[in-house]
């Protein structure tokens, strides 16, 4: 098993699927000549040429719509948004067109396409460039939403997303591109909709996804030194969501903290807590707590930004609280 970066794992997935199926193409701003704003498409123009690795103008609504049209008539577009913050300009094509086409047409027009790009905050990019969008897209029937937190999941899920006949919103962690991890050699597929228990413990469940998986793993390491062992349930996909995996863990630990990068109100955690109260009502020994971004636009100043973000310290405090240790 090779150790590769999250970025290279994504590039591998793109390259393998472009080789596998000539209906697959990648389009977006700076994906070709520039090799990708985050270098995820590095080298692909040379290998696959300008018909399949397509630079677009800065016109998110326009090229997202081009992807929809191409998918309607049988191509398999991968539409890259330079960041998901810019995808708001294209949300009509994602939500009103791609997500609903199969239903509105009574099953006649499938949408085999992927919208992908970096999601969540980086460092000091302030309000308009630091947002986690998964709860927005997870709200929409017709979409699938992937939030890989590790290189192996990034590769395996992207390959599944490209092969899926439905529109998949693929949210990459902007701060994850340089992180490294083991990726299985050869064909590596991760099914959409299946969570993974990334760490096993009996004391509390931490349910998370995306970039926060790394935070949860650090929390697990830190707490282990204190003799507290937690389950880390990595959802990996937030639509569909693996309710059984959540329930299995909470029924074992009887306590849960939901950790996410986005805001509190109508966040992914709201939905996870709803599933827990329905599936695990009699199993709970404490109220479920949530850790998330503070309810403010992301500030620029280092200290304020740090205070606004969810982190290991906040997660540990929440875990201790549900364990009545604080």
């Amino acid at each position: 098993m090779a150790v590769v970066t999250y970025r290279d794992a994504l590039t591998q997935a793109l390259r393998e699927e472009l080789q596998r199926d000539d209906r697959v193409f990648l389009m977006g701003e700076e994906v070709a000549q520039y090799n990708g704003a985050y270098k995820v498409s590095k080298g692909l123009l040379d290998e696959f040429g300008p018909m399949r690795i397509v630079d677009t103008p800065i016109t998110e609504l326009g090229f997202a719509g081009v992807g929809v049209g191409a998918a309607m008539v049988g191509l398999r577009p991968i539409v890259e948004f330079m960041t998901w913050n810019f995808a708001l300009l294209a949300i009509d094509e994602v939500v009103n067109a791609a997500a609903k086409m199969l239903y509105m047409s009574g099953g006649q027009y499938k949408m085999p396409m992927v919208f992908r790009g970096p999601n969540g905050s980086a460092l000091q990019l302030s309000a308009q460039h630091s947002q986690a969008w998964e709860s927005w897209y997870a709200h929409i029937p017709g979409l699938k939403v992937c939030t890989p937190g590790t290189p192996a999941d990034a590769k395996g899920l992207l390959k599944s997303a490209i092969r899926d006949d439905n529109p998949v919103v693929f949210l990459e962690g902007e701060m994850l591109y340089n992180t490294k991890g083991e990726v299985p050699d050869g064909e590596h597929i991760v099914p959409i909709g299946v969570a993974e228990l990334k760490r096993e413990g009996d004391h509390c469940s931490v349910i998370t996804h995306g970039k926060m998986v790394l935070v949860a793993m650090k929390v697990a390491d830190d707490l282990a030194k204190e003799g507290i062992n937690i389950d880390v349930v990595d959802l990996r996909t937030v639509r569909p969501i693996d309710v059984e995996a959540i329930a299995r863990s909470v029924q074992k630990t009887n306590r849960a903290v939901v950790l996410e990068e986005g805001w509190e109100i109508c966040g992914m955690g709201s939905q996870v807590v709803d599933f827990i109260q329905r599936e695990c009502f009699d199993d709970l020994d404490a109220p479920v707590l949530r850790v998330h971004q503070e309810d403010v636009p992301m500030p620029y100043a280092k200290n304020l930004e740090r205070a606004a973000k969810p982190d290991a310290g906040k997660a540990i405090a929440a875990i201790k609280k549900v364990m009545y240790l604080d």
Partner: peptide, 29 residues
Amino acid sequence: HIFDAKTNFLGGHGIVGGHVPVAAGVGFA
């Protein structure tokens, strides 16, 4: 939202202008 795959009739779209880029996408394909 009238769609008919047999005659390549790609809909029937309800958001003013929203389907115009989709047409470009069909042209692209």
